[in-house]
Amino acid sequence: MTGGSGGIGGAVARRLAADGMAVVVHYAGSAAKAEAVVESVTAAGGTAVALPGDVAEPTQMTGLFDAVEERFGGVDVVVNTAGIMLLAPLAEMELEAFDRMHRVNVRGTFVVSQLAARRLRPGGALINFSTSVTRLQQPDYGGYAATKGAVEAMTLIMARELRGRDVTVNAVAPGPTATPLFVEGKGEELIARIAAAAPLERLGTPEDIAETVSFLARPAGHWINGQVLFSNGGIA
């Protein structure tokens, strides 16, 4: 799984390991965080390994897939949690910031999805990550939502392109989720207001999102295909 060292990524790694999967925790920056996720998985009796790479570079990602196949014999589930979010009104956003998001969120998803389409075994699943912001139309999120709209388009079309392969392709679209990245820079009043927006009146947790991914990754979710699942407590 890409972005496995992040808050949601780490929770997904632990949940899939609890399902009995051998998990590859991909990371781009923080080896220490990725290794901490691996240690938490192995401490619970699971199997995990951390591997680096730039999701937007086909050569590096091909090497990662090669390493996974050599170590574990094949690829059954690919989860794309890697992504970055930079916020500003469209009229004020620097093009460099938009290009950075596009490189990771769109090009990175394209590269990894393409490899997944070629490598996933029958019965497998590709799970990309969108965001509930694509439906909320919140100011300052235009550039970020645009990249995730592209992810949704690729996901839905690829599900139809893989007809006959017995491979599902879906996207998970989290709402506001209590990760360190979300909380950073926000006061308690703002966080409380965001939490109250959902009918369930709380923020999501990384574990909430991980449960959605787990469902899509297991045989129980294999009849779900070509969908965007909004895991957001009803906020959108």
Rank of each mutant, 00 (worst) to 15 (best):
V38G: 01
T155Y: 06
S40G: 00
V183S: 11
R165L: 11
M101L: 11
Q137L: 13
P174H: 13
Q138N: 12
G4V: 07
G4C: 02
A97I: 06
V112P: 05
L95T: 13
V167H: 03
L216W: 04
R103K: 14
R71D: 00
V213A: 01
H222D: 00
D76H: 13
S130F: 10
V79Q: 10
K148S: 09
M21S: 08
G4W: 03
E201I: 04
F182I: 01
V75Q: 04
Y144K: 15
T212L: 06
Y144P: 03
V38P: 04
L64V: 12
G3N: 04
L16P: 00
G83C: 03
V37Y: 10
V12D: 00
G7P: 01
S30F: 01
A18G: 08
E69Y: 09
E94A: 15
A117D: 00
F110L: 15
L126P: 00
L126Y: 05
K33C: 05
Q60G: 03
G7K: 07
H102Y: 15
V183L: 15
L203K: 13
A192G: 02
T177V: 02
R202A: 08
K33Q: 14
D99F: 04
A220Y: 08
G63F: 04
T177F: 05
R103T: 14
A18M: 06
A67Y: 05
D208I: 00
L87I: 07
D54A: 03
T109W: 12
R121F: 11
G4N: 03
A97V: 08
P180Q: 09
L203I: 02
T131L: 07
N232D: 11
T147R: 04
L136K: 15
G83H: 11
R107L: 13
T47A: 11
R121N: 01
G4T: 01
D208N: 06
V68M: 13
F110A: 05
M101N: 04
G29L: 15
Q60S: 04
S214W: 03
A67N: 03
I8F: 06
A18C: 07
V49S: 06
L181S: 13
F98T: 09
G204L: 06
E69I: 12
E161H: 06
T177S: 06
G46H: 14
R118P: 02
T131H: 12
V133E: 07
I224T: 03
E57N: 14
L126Q: 00
G234M: 14
L115V: 02
A220H: 13
L156P: 00
R165C: 03
R119C: 01
E39I: 05
A195V: 10
V213N: 01
R121Q: 10
I84Y: 01
I8K: 12
P199H: 07
V78M: 09
S214T: 05
A36E: 09
A67T: 11
A11Q: 10
P139S: 12
A88T: 10
V49C: 07
V183E: 14
L86Y: 07
L16I: 04
L51R: 14
L162F: 09
R160P: 02
A36R: 08
P52G: 08
T131M: 05
I127P: 01
G143N: 05
H26C: 03
